[in-house]
Amino acid sequence: MAEITLQVNGAQRSVSADTRTSLLDLLREHLDLTGTKKGCDHGQCGACTVLIDGRRANSCLALAVAWDGAEITTVEGLGDGAEPHPLQTAFMDFDAFQCGYCTPGQLCSAAGMLAEGGPSAVTADLTGDPPLTAEEIRERMNGNLCRCGAYVNIVAAIEDVSR
């Protein structure tokens, strides 16, 4: 067992958990924050994406104990409590989901991605900071699968927020 303290969506949370506990399971099973979803549990689908110290990460591949002391933002903490995050509004405006299971991961990943900047694998000139075209967004969101295939509207929603 390990004592793990995290800042989760702005509140300090302390949990005693087995060292095997992933950050994903800690959020869902210990803290009842079930907005973060378990898809593949292998880092391949992105449904479990959260922000760790402001950077997007697969919470299924993170051992909670290894991130003791970190600041975590889940989909529940994206908005400010009164208003949804602009990405959440855009996802509704653009109908960027069907079943919705991948959506929390898409939202957290998009929020992290918009803060990253810099080039991607599809950027021609790596020294620059290219505009976020649809092609750039698709590449940067490659870690989030949507089995309903709502990609067209997900890209449109993110593009709208990035403008």
Partner: peptide
């Protein structure tokens, strides 16, 4: 990999 994996 992906943006998430590269961050970790």
């Amino acid at each position: 990999a992906s943006g998430q994996v590269r961050n970790m």
